[in-house]
Design a protein around this nucleic acid. Structure first.
Length: 774
DNA sequence: CTAGGGTTAG
């Protein structure tokens, strides 16, 4: 038994309202109020042992006696009142209440106390209040019931007021009362008040109690104070499954899934058995952190504990396997007895969509995308209707596959099924169109949205910035602020990118400042990246490098893209010393990476440092660094055709090469000059002969994208745009050549390579550049 | 009273 302090002073602990300061101290347990408040389950508003749910017959008997207006034992009302709670029926409660008054039962304090509880739980707080007012004495149960009622009635402040009155009337709160009071703090969104209650709780050593501790933990989590949540959790003497599950959920809510997962093995070690909710929570965190290994173990645990048939659990596991690209083991997870639920379908599609980002290269990502589309087709064949989750996921798949035609079909589907008004679907459409090269349709989709979220605005701002529409991006940012939508860090990435593309140094620095001063956002690597990019574009390399140093001083490690930006700038503006430094940093950061070596090589080639070129090549050989795969692809009528530089794989290659040669001649006559790059593409060798001859750089005349475009010209209608995707960066010559072709053939040519999207219309080109989000 | 639980957009 917990010992109680000899006197209780609330004035030092609870300072919510001025009147609290006038409180007298509640007295110690008395006959009137005999409970030791923080003993768990000592007081319970539910019926205790002798009033288990009545058997049908007894219940009916009691009911008929009451209907007949006969007097019954007070305890007969209890199961009937319990029924009223279950049904949440205030009117039936009133009928019973009237009967009690008629038969004199309203003198029974115990039954009437319970009646307060019933009214409160049925949402009839005023009735509860009246009953309480007529009671000769109040106890902790009736006070607590009333508080609970007011919370349900969305009047937490009244509940707090009642708590104060309760103390004034020298009634001690039970652990349940305290838990309810804490919930009132939660509803009032007042962490200050919660801390006062917490102090009160600590003072009476109730923080060791399981229910109280659980409640405190969740409360602090809600107030985004995870440290306090963990402290509250640690104070709990007997941590039950709810404590552990709550602690882990709290971590998840506060974006600390990895921390949350650490509690799981501890829980098992302490011998607490996880239930379905625990497992669902753990799996959800596995999904966030992509913990496949742990996920597998949890999977077998779920089977062992018999929870695998729980659909939340099995869908979570399936999602994990798919998103980690691990497609075995998934068959058994689908319940084959009934129709597959839409959530299961969605988990499969979303899993594939996520897996695309992890794929080794674009080619395998494309394959996973095709899988996702097949699942979508099967879903439609099964007769189940796709929902907003399905459509937004599948639009993301289209975005990642750069499949604008498919995206258009899904768009039509969306319109037909009425999900176009869904904000997430609308945002997915904006991004799909933007990434597939159509900023016009992205903008149209954005304007047609009935409502826009922070992410919608951010997507549109970033899209405009990526397509080089800096002014429009900044204007939209101002519109967003006028619409009173609060931007976040990623919005500012778009804003700074817009400034960077347009060389607006002054504005960029202003927004950078605004972000920190007005919005209290700490700059991220991406924000610095935009500034570095801006200085690099302007050839202000010193300032670019200063920005890198500034970034380091802010404890932000420069990343791959930081160094890549610097290297590109140094190559364009001939700063060998800084460029080499950056290249070496990159090599430290990503050793054995093909891209890194190619960059290093190109740097030396451009600087005519041939000794270094051969040194790096030897190093690549010694370290067995792989080569990049180069191919270009074009999709015509749903079929995909792949091309490789200088290869003659396609059955119609004669026509293709003939057309290319013709176009080349014609372009030359119009002033185009072929520029065979000395640039090392680091691509895989086309065949053994070429390797033998030592020809390291295949001629740009027949680069794979040229072959693909020629094939497109041959096989699509005269006015159709030609869309080609390429696995690595496109070279300068192809760029100039496509400008010429677009004017000669009067065709729109769109090429998406690993970094940029280029659009060629009537001899002009426009560029969309995608950062990491692309 | 503590316990929500599968799947969507930057």
């Amino acid at each position: 038994m917990a010992s109680l302090p000899s006197s209780v002073s609330l004035t030092s602990t609870l300072k919510f309202q001025p009147q609290l300061n006038r409180l007298s101290s509640p007295s110690l347990p008395t006959e009137k109020n005999p409970s030791i408040p923080w003993q768990r389950s000592h007081i319970n508003t539910k019926l205790d042992g002798n009033s288990k749910p009545m058997r049908g017959l007894e219940y009916k008997e009691a009911l008929s006696l009451i209907r007949d207006g006969k007097k019954v034992e007070p305890s007969c009302y209890l199961p009937l009142l319990q029924q009223c709670i279950d049904k949440k029926s205030a009117s039936e409660t009133q009928i019973l209440h009237a009967h009690m008054i008629k038969t004199g039962t309203h003198q029974d304090v115990f039954v009437m106390t319970f009646l307060v509880n019933v009214y409160a739980k049925c949402g009839a707080v005023s009735n509860a209040q009246k009953v309480l007012a007529n009671l000769p004495e109040r106890n902790v149960v009736s006070w607590t019931a009333l508080m609970s009622g007011y919370i349900q009635d969305s009047k937490p402040e009244v509940a707090i007021q009642l708590f104060v009155e309760m103390l004034e009337s020298e009634t001690f709160p039970s652990n349940l009362t305290l838990a309810i009071a804490l919930n009132a703090c939660s509803s009032l969104n007042s962490i200050e008040l919660a801390r006062q209650f917490h102090a009160f709780i600590v003072k009476y050593k109730a923080d060791h109690d399981t229910s109280i501790g659980n409640t405190l933990c969740r409360l602090y989590s809600k107030f985004q104070s995870l440290g306090d949540a963990i402290k509250a959790f640690q104070k709990i003497e007997e941590k039950d499954v709810i404590s552990w599950t709550g602690m882990m959920s709290s971590c998840e809510e506060n974006s600390r899934a990895a921390t949350g997962l650490k509690f799981f093995p501890q829980m098992l070690v302490e011998g607490v058995k996880p239930n379905e909710l625990t497992l669902a929570s753990v799996l959800s965190m596995c999904n966030i952190t992509m913990s496949l290994g742990l996920g597998r173990q949890v999977h077998s645990l779920c089977i062992k504990l018999g929870h695998i048939s729980n659909s939340s659990v099995s869908n979570s596991i399936m999602y994990l396997y798919f998103k980690c690209g691990c497609t075995d083991n998934t068959e058994n997870l689908v319940d084959k007895k009934g129709p597959i639920s839409i959530i299961t379908w969605n988990a499969m599609i979303a899993g594939h969509s996520q897996a695309m980002s992890l794929a080794e290269d674009d080619h395998s990502a494309y394959g996973i995308g095709v899988e996702a589309l097949n699942i979508f087709l099967n879903l439609n064949r099964s007769g189940i209707k796709p929902d907003a989750f399905t459509l937004s996921s599948i639009l993301t798949v289209c975005r990642k596959m750069l499949a604008i035609e498919l995206g258009e079909q899904v768009h039509a589907h969306t319109l037909k099924s009425g999900f176009l008004s869904d904000v997430v679907v609308g945002t997915a459409l904006v991004n799909m169109y933007s990434k597939c090269g159509s900023i016009e349709r992205a903008r149209k989709a954005f304007l047609e949205m009935p409502s826009r979220s922070l992410i919608s605005w951010t997507s549109m701002i970033n899209s405009l910035a990526q397509h080089g529409y800096s002014q429009q991006a900044l204007q939209l940012f101002e519109d967003m602020r006028l619409a009173e939508v609060r931007p976040n860090e990623i919005t500012f990435v778009g804003v700074l990118a817009a400034c960077s593309r347009a060389g607006m140094v002054k504005e960029a620095l202003e927004y950078f400042k605004m972000m920190q001063k007005e919005y209290k956002f700490k700059p991220l690597s991406d924000h610095y990246g935009c500034l570095i990019d801006m200085f690099v574009r302007l050839g202000r390399l010193d300032e670019a490098f200063d920005t890198v140093k500034k970034m380091e001083s802010m404890q932000l490690e420069p990343n791959e893209s930081t160094w890549l930006l610097l290297i590109a700038g140094c190559r364009n503006h001939g700063n060998d010393e800084l460029g080499l430094y950056a290249a070496e940093q990159l090599l430290n950061l990503k050793p054995k990476n093909t891209q890194t070596y190619v960059i290093l090589l190109n740097f030396y080639i451009a600087a005519n440092r041939w000794k270094d070129v051969s040194r790096v090549r030897k190093l690549m050989k010694a370290e067995k660094v792989g080569k990049l795969k180069d191919w270009s692809r074009i999709s015509i009528k749903g079929k995909v055709y792949s091309f490789k530089t200088s290869r003659r794989l396609h059955p119609r290659n004669k026509e293709i090469y003939k057309l290319l040669d013709e176009l080349l001649d014609k372009a030359k006559s119009m002033g185009y000059e072929f520029d065979d790059n000395t640039e090392e593409m680091g691509v895989e060798d086309n065949d053994e002969d070429e390797k033998e001859s030592g020809k390291m750089v295949p001629s740009a005349i027949y680069h794979s994208e040229k072959l693909a475009v020629a094939f497109g010209l041959l096989n699509t209608p005269n006015n159709a745009p030609i869309r080609v995707t390429k696995s690595i960066s496109m070279c300068k010559d192809c760029h100039t050549f496509f400008r010429a072709i677009s004017s000669m053939t009067n065709r729109e040519i769109i090429v998406r390579d690993s970094k940029k999207l280029r659009k060629f219309v009537s001899g002009q080109s426009s560029l969309a550049e995608f950062g990491n989000a692309g």
